[in-house]
Computed example of a mutant assay.
Amino acid sequence: MMPTGDVVARLRAAGCVFAEDEARLLIAAATETGADLAELVAQRVSGTPLEYLLGWTEFHGMRVAVVPGVFVPRQRTAFLVDEAADLARAMPTHPIVVDICCGSGALGLALAKTLAAEGRPIELAATDIEPTAVECARRNLTPIGAPVYEGDLFEPLPCELCGRINILLANTPYVPSEMISRMPPEARDHEPRTALDGGPDGLDIFRRVVAAARTWLAPGGHLLVESTEAQAMPSIGILTAHGFTGRSAESDQLYSTVVIGTKPDA
């Protein structure tokens, strides 16, 4: 096995800012799985995301399985989970939650486990259009009894959920198309474009979600979507045009903006 110092040196030379931490994780992964450490280091140096090499990422205080070709959940998205948890706590009954564009299923998993630890179970389902993401999400969500459906946005959901969803998590792609080329290579070259590209202004998928969400949400239900600060006001305008009450929430600590639309009670 490569000496730790050599691993750190190679990672640092490749521009890895947290070379010592990454070296520790790669050495542990090689030890636990029997993988060739030199090959793991070579892949990392070539630009493969660390999470793909480890097979997991830490999100909202838990390990979430990830595989190559699946969007890696960002730490800033933990704020969306916290906002959803606050809304769920205010509900008198156990909420029905759906995570669309779910990727690895990290958002739904984190919300379910956070509330379960407080004795607040939820009914959870998830969807994604990418087969690799669906397979990965099932690894994360099947153990907690949550089904994952393959298809475009709401299309694969069972009809009995229509009009009954209390919380809709939608980490839709919101990077403007022309900005994809400026993203870090780890995301641009390895994650699916469908998980990144939000169209000319970054809001194409958001518009589609909002247009259908009113049918699927229960009265008083909430839609939560991650956004940029600049997109927040246009997003609220889209929500308002479809009959939602819209607002935004921000976390300075996580550099995160979440747009929340609430369906009228009647």
Score class of each variant (00 low, 15 high):
residue 132 T to A: 15
residue 24 R to H: 09
residue 215 T to S: 07
residue 201 D to V: 00
residue 152 D to H: 12
residue 101 C to W: 08
residue 20 E to H: 10
residue 214 R to T: 11
residue 70 V to D: 03
residue 193 R to M: 08
residue 84 A to T: 05
residue 83 E to R: 12
residue 124 L to W: 10
residue 24 R to P: 00
residue 106 A to V: 13
residue 108 G to I: 07
residue 61 G to K: 02
residue 213 A to G: 05
residue 266 A to D: 14
residue 209 V to T: 07
residue 153 L to K: 05
residue 172 T to N: 11
residue 144 I to A: 03
residue 88 A to K: 04
residue 234 P to N: 03
residue 192 P to R: 02
residue 186 E to T: 00
residue 166 N to P: 12
residue 5 G to E: 15
residue 32 E to H: 00
residue 95 P to E: 12
residue 257 T to D: 02
residue 98 V to L: 05
residue 78 A to Y: 06
residue 100 I to N: 03
residue 135 E to W: 05
residue 238 I to T: 10
residue 18 F to S: 03
residue 169 L to Q: 06
residue 247 R to E: 09
residue 167 I to C: 09
residue 140 N to K: 12
residue 147 P to K: 06
residue 193 R to H: 10
residue 249 A to E: 12
residue 203 L to K: 01
residue 125 A to N: 00
residue 236 I to G: 01
residue 134 V to T: 07
residue 69 G to H: 12
residue 222 H to S: 15
residue 7 V to K: 04
residue 112 A to K: 00
residue 139 R to Y: 10
residue 205 I to Q: 02
residue 229 E to K: 15
residue 83 E to I: 08
residue 137 A to W: 11
residue 7 V to Y: 02
residue 155 E to I: 00
residue 219 P to R: 06
residue 150 E to G: 15
residue 163 G to P: 03
residue 73 P to E: 01
residue 149 Y to Q: 00
residue 8 V to T: 04
residue 205 I to P: 00
residue 167 I to P: 05
residue 52 Y to M: 00
residue 255 Y to H: 15
residue 157 L to W: 01
residue 55 G to I: 14
residue 253 Q to K: 05
residue 4 T to F: 14
residue 158 P to L: 07
residue 146 A to Y: 01
residue 255 Y to C: 14
residue 40 L to E: 07
residue 103 G to N: 11
residue 213 A to R: 00
residue 45 V to L: 13
residue 167 I to G: 07
residue 50 L to G: 04
residue 107 L to D: 03
residue 242 H to I: 06
residue 75 Q to R: 14
residue 72 V to M: 06
residue 110 A to F: 10
residue 41 V to M: 08
residue 243 G to R: 02
residue 131 P to H: 14
residue 4 T to M: 14
residue 188 R to L: 00
residue 135 E to T: 08
residue 130 E to Y: 01
residue 109 L to E: 04
residue 53 L to C: 08
residue 160 E to T: 02
residue 42 A to C: 11
residue 148 V to M: 07
residue 102 C to T: 15
residue 5 G to K: 10
residue 10 R to A: 09
residue 196 L to A: 06
residue 228 T to M: 12
residue 167 I to T: 05
residue 174 Y to G: 02
residue 190 H to G: 04
residue 42 A to K: 11
residue 179 M to W: 14
residue 46 S to L: 01
residue 99 D to F: 08
residue 209 V to M: 03
